[in-house]
Design a protein around this nucleic acid. Structure first.
Lengths: 222, 222
DNA sequence: TTATATAAAATAATCGATTTTTTAACCAAC
DNA sequence: GTTGGTTAAAAAATCGATTATTTTATATAA
């Protein structure tokens, strides 16, 4: 029997930040909702100071809105913002993918194949939980990783989190994702062929289709 | 005599955030420096809690780097990051300016002229202090304001703050800014003519020249 | 009713002190 | 002289309680 408590990595602040980020992106809060700080304290078993620091970071990141003297709320969702986010993804991820294909080396190629493989394994198990989401994010990160711009990567990451607030509305629908999942492998194939023209076209299509799905989710959402 | 203290707007946290942002962008801290929180507390006459909340926000915004358990430091400067920031400005501000020219209405035209005029007045007084910086930021914000994308505007704002960390290194050199200042009016002229092709070209040139200046500052910086 | 004022409750923001972790200083062993 | 280990000091993170502000409830007058 092991009586050693494993040392719990990071600060309370950084842990609650990551947890809240995950839950905000994953739709655990309703859009527009005012966050009751005391309730969060209990729900996540965390002190007030680290919690407030995390909320402040999330507000600066864009996953919360902060109003002076009246705390934090979950940002509203809107059609126009979804359009904005999707358009920016088209521009920025397209740009980044082209550049990644220019600069990516053989290590990147290996990582791409690995990331795609791990994602496919998760696709077929069909449960599509937080595990799948994580692999999916990682896959898209890998696609653009060697684009050469840390700021571009940063913005893309932020847009993904925002986009996923829409995509992950409502229940899982595995059948609709079929095409999207297939495109992941085609993206890898075109990247390996260094066909940046076709690669970008497919990336555009991929984002468009994701957008259609997110839009449907948003409209059905009530 | 007026004994009423005027009510000091905003929370302590939001005020120290703005102050620190200004000072970080304005070069009041040396790049790479570790921030001594207690020293900041005294320097800015602010309590620990609001100060830490502001530092957390600034870290999420990219004007500080946070290392678990070892506080905050001012990000290092590097040639490659300056190049990255300038390139991203070229892409994003160019895009935004073109869109602004498509969508901007007559109210925008008036605001453009006003912003350019205020900036010119500040140009000629030649003292180029924090006042000029503020008007300069406002002018560039106005140029792209009606681009239709809040995320694009957000990213551009962030890049400007990052860029200015380089541009504002070292002492003021009014003569070098001559060309830049003249371009401001030409940008307005082309915007009013709705000549988005020429406007973008000039914007590109403007950013390039700013980049040359910032690069020189960075290289001379020691 | 509708509006406005006031009091009570709830919540946000901040403070001061404590706990935890890192950094620095020191010393011994190799 | 360097390495490794121990202790002291400094700094970061967190806690518990206080203060300030907003919100809700209640009362009163137009």
């Amino acid at each position: 029997m092991n009586h050693h408590v494993q040392p719990v990595i990071g600060t309370a602040s950084s842990r609650i930040y990551e947890t809240l980020r995950r839950d905000l992106v994953g739709g655990q809060f309703v859009a527009g909702e005012k966050l009751a700080i005391n309730a969060l304290k209990e729900r996540y078993h965390v002190g007030l100071s680290p919690l407030r620091e995390a909320l402040n970071k999330l507000a600066a990141y864009g996953l919360l809105v902060q109003e002076n003297q009246r705390g934090f709320r979950v940002p509203k969702l809107s059609r126009s913002e979804l359009d904005d986010i999707a358009n920016m993804r088209l521009e920025l991820e397209g740009m980044a993918f082209e550049r990644a294909i220019q600069h990516g080396d053989d290590v990147w190629e290996a990582e791409l194949l690995a990331a795609a493989h791990r994602l496919k394994r998760a696709d077929t198990t069909l449960d599509k939980g937080e595990e799948w989401e994580s692999l999916h994010s990682q896959f898209h990160r890998t696609l653009v990783a060697p684009c050469g711009s840390v700021w571009l990567l940063r913005f893309i990451e932020q847009l993904h989190d925002q986009f996923d607030r829409y995509r992950r509305l409502g229940p899982k629908m595995p059948t609709v994702r079929q095409t999207l999942d297939e495109q992941h492998h085609e993206l890898v194939a075109l990247a390996l062929k260094r066909d940046s023209k076709a690669a970008r076209a497919l990336m555009d299509d991929h984002i468009q289709k994701s957008y259609q799905l997110a839009l449907k989710r948003y409209q059905e959402h009530a």
